[in-house]
Write a protein that binds this DNA or RNA. Structure first.
Lengths: 216, 216, 216, 216
DNA sequence: AATGAATGAGCATTCATTCAT
DNA sequence: CATGAATGAATGCTCATTCAT
């Protein structure tokens, strides 16, 4: 019998166990969101309990996405903290850390790709607003950090980050493909679609940010 | 009743009428693909007839996407045709036409956003391969046109276009939102997420392509 | 609304209510299996609940068939239980009870007639194996009872029962016809096809088993 | 372009080509009736043409079944033609030829198994009556031949044949199984269900007819 | 708090048959 | 006669969510 989670700490732990189970299943098959029953099983809970901690299944994955975004914005803060390095160094450091982060957190882009069409649809305005507000705040803070670090006018930091992430997201969606397409994609005629996501991201971001460095 | 489409021309017309109906319905509600029954109704045909012209519902929307991509790549060819204009002019022309095209073809990005998670999944490897092959070929041709026009090394054209479209796709997914979110998005705290897609696309692309112009 | 069936007994009752509803509908129209929606309605449950108790619609009807077979084999056990009666008496008792059972369980032969072409096809190997195994075991036990009772060599009991049921099944398919054919069948020219199933079954089985009685 | 079949002979030939195609396809996959489109293809005709020669798809297969039944009853006539052989010889000859016929005409029992639930359902009373009438007449004639040959009272011939075929049909349905079940059926626990159709048919018929021979 | 039984909306696709050509 | 384009009925099953216990 599962213990009742009576205090806040227990509740948080249980909530986390759901998130961990959900992430694990999603990483195993990113083509679709795992079913609620499957997540409950993996977390050792019943289906009903899931809904004591999250209002919808999508909310679970939004929470995951939220975590990942938080980590990514953390990178930004870290790279652009005010220190004595040159602008070029800061940007180079940022890009390196950013690409690395994206690579080591494969669920970020996968969730995002599903997100637009699936996640946000079944979410309800209320939890959606919560996520959006928190994200907007974190994004603003990170943007300000960039602005201060690079002496950019107000609002430019957010825009740079937005463009940077857009490029990332778009490239991933254009270049990533499921394992099951492997054979098809090996066709030489499809070479143009088989660019390396990591290499392209690095180059494209470098090119995009180069202008900034020069301007600054 | 409905005329039998006996010759090739009539068949093409009927196929087009299905595409037109599907596009119309999708533009009205981009959150999900319209049902086969709905498309058939809108086209004034029976459900069965749909399947004489397309093997699956997804194939219908892939065909639409394909058309839009074709039009977009057409733009590229046109903008980069060899003439006496300077590199800067060519790029400026291209970007202007590109942004315009994207704006006047709202189903392109909407389909693409669904595409990753929905369209390609239900398509079957065979029709998928067909679309990919045609797309890869068209992309290669357009990439070569860019290379010739801007005197870029082989392979750079495709990459530039890939990056450009990635930025577009990513920005749109980050900045577009359905009409039903209007009220929520009006919250001042969400201002950072309320950038204008068109303006951001223009600026971000300009910034990205600026490097190219200089290099060349 | 509906009570949740929490313990094993309630669950069994609910499962039975589904079977009862399915049998009722099938007896009303034996030409095709009732739809899942129809069964659910008749049982006062939702479609989804059906699938909590049975994996496929066909499994419902296989369960019915299984029940009927079980009852029929029960007859065999009973008729051939070892007692002081003569062989002839045992056989006569068996045949009487058998014909009676077949008559009072019209769904048995109707399901079996559908079974070959419909039931077993949509069942999946796994549930099919389950049914086959249970049936084979029950058939073996009944066959052994016959052998012991009539002092037959091993294996003969199963064969006798198999032949007996084959004759039953075949006669029923040859002689039964739906109510809607009544008028057509009244044509004097069709007299040869209008033999009484019950009478023919009785005579044919008597003739077939007569040999056994003599041999024994 | 297919030639128009103008005279009776051509029409008969075209009708036959449809039957041949249908039989061939059905022998290849006896689990379901081949589709009308498939039959048309195999016969080198269009779907529409099929319906110039048969009112429904089922009529095609009823015609096949009819042919097979005719051949089977032919056997009866031949075996029981009046000559100097003893009753036992006649019966033995008949059974041998009968079992052989059944074996060399696998579509007979396969169609019959489908027949009850599928064929007769979609046939329409009118063509059904035609088939029934012809069949009843042929059956009567064969029955009379048996009666005369074996000096049986009127009506017994038809009944003997009816019982004989019932046993055949029932045994086949009990013992035949599709190739795809092979692995499952190899389970030793299913041995009782794995009797040889041919051997059982031979024995069961011998046992059934033994009584007749003696009586006569 | 936890459970898990119950719910029911939602939809692509096939294919026998018809009928315009 | 022949064609093949057009038709449209018919339905099992999943799974997120609720709610009785």
């Amino acid at each position: 019998m599962v213990q009742h989670a009576l205090d806040t700490k227990d509740k948080q732990a249980r909530r986390d166990s759901i998130l961990i189970a959900a992430r694990g299943l999603f990483l195993g098959d990113s083509e679709r969101l795992p079913s609620a029953a499957h997540i409950a099983d993996a977390a050792g809970l019943s289906k009903g309990t899931l809904y004591l901690y999250f209002r919808t299944k999508e909310e679970i994955f939004m929470a995951l996405l939220h975590e990942e975004w938080g980590g990514l914005l953390e990178q930004v803060h870290h790279a652009f903290r005010i220190d004595k390095r040159s602008t070029e160094h800061k940007i180079a450091d940022f890009l390196k850390g950013y690409v690395e982060y994206v690579h080591t957190h494969p669920d970020l882009l996968r969730l995002d790709a599903l997100g637009y069409s699936v996640l946000e649809r079944n979410l309800g305005l209320d939890p959606l607003r919560t996520f959006k507000l928190e994200f907007a705040a974190a994004l603003s803070r990170a943007g300000q950090a960039v602005e201060e670090s690079l002496h950019l006018p107000e609002g430019q930091g957010v825009r740079l980050l937005m463009h940077t992430y857009a490029l990332t997201r778009g490239l991933w969606q254009s270049l990533d493909y499921p394992e099951t397409w492997r054979e098809m994609m090996d066709d030489p005629a499809l070479a143009p679609l088989r660019l390396s996501f990591r290499a392209e991201l690095k180059d494209a971001l470098a090119q995009y940010w180069r202008g900034i460095g020069h301007v600054v």
